[in-house]
């Protein structure tokens, strides 16, 4: 393996605390310029510190324990938290929404992670946490953003296209046909950030995971290959989850006999 003679410098806790100085400088600029973001910056910095450190310890334990059910449990927790986050960001929060999001993200992430880890990389054992957890995490995180955009957009599209939808229904269209343009617009909105990042990756910015791999001593070429696969995984996962989400979500605006529900708009 290339890059083995690279000496990784470990970061001590003192180093981490000193790095907080960067945030203090940022907070200083905020205060100086009257941005009123000092509080948020400090809270954000402390949360980053605690959350990531906690995750680090949890992962260390999981990797050492090496049990498939624990890995699946962690991935399920990721999906649940992501689903609740997507729901919280919506103006119209319905009881079924976190379940729909959870289902769509499980399907989108599950299919892509399965294809890549089991068919492409053929990891052994099948639940090898060094692969499964970071890959699932990357895919779920990006699906979360895509899902938020998809739901937000389908809700606003149906509302703003109410008259067009009724014109279609009056011509004998099914609810699915009448909402077709709204569904397509929502799926596009969910996919565009992923496509944009595929367009500029490596040119405008180096992706976080690739940077991490390089820093930990992996050859840049290997890191790049992983990053390419990850970008493709994200694209498929966002496509599947936004397709499922928009196609389930639009139904709440229609009755079974193809009428637009005024009260849900």
């Amino acid at each position: 393996m290339e890059g083995l003679n690279f000496n990784l410098i470990d970061i001590s806790y003192l180093d981490l605390i000193i790095s907080l100085g960067l945030i203090i400088v940022a907070a200083g600029i905020s205060k100086w310029q009257g941005m009123y973001l000092e509080g948020d910056l400090i809270v954000g910095a402390v949360r980053t510190f605690i959350q990531l450190l906690a995750v680090g310890y949890i992962l260390k334990y999981i990797f050492a324990f090496d049990r498939w059910y624990l890995i699946i449990f962690i991935i399920l927790i990721m999906i649940i938290i992501a689903s609740l986050t997507v729901t919280q960001r919506q103006k119209k929060r319905t009881i079924e929404l976190p379940f729909i999001v959870g289902f769509a993200m499980t399907a989108g992430s599950g299919i892509t992670v399965f294809v890549v880890t089991q068919i492409l990389l053929q990891i052994k054992p099948w639940y090898e946490p060094h692969y499964l957890i970071p890959l699932a995490g990357m895919v779920i995180g990006n699906s979360m953003n895509g899902s938020t955009l998809a739901i937000d957009r389908i809700d606003s599209e149906i509302k703003s296209r109410k008259m067009e939808i009724e014109a279609y229904l009056a011509l004998g269209a099914t609810a699915r046909q009448a909402a077709g343009a709204s569904i397509r617009a929502a799926m596009r909105a969910a996919m565009i950030p992923t496509i944009n990042s595929m367009m500029v990756v490596g040119i405008v910015a180096l992706p976080g995971m690739m940077t991490g791999q390089i820093l930990s001593g992996t050859s840049p070429l290997i890191a790049v290959k992983y990053q390419i696969i990850i970008m493709y995984m994200i694209a498929l996962s966002v496509a599947i989850s936004s397709y499922l989400l928009t196609n389930i979500r639009f139904n709440r605006y229609f009755t079974s006999d193809h009428r637009l529900k005024e009260e849900s708009l």
Binding site: L169, A170, L171, G172, T174, D257, H258, R259
Partner: peptide, 8 residues
């Protein structure tokens, strides 16, 4: 009457 037929 099926609703889609009716609307046509």
């Amino acid at each position: 009457i099926p609703v889609l037929d009716l609307r046509r």
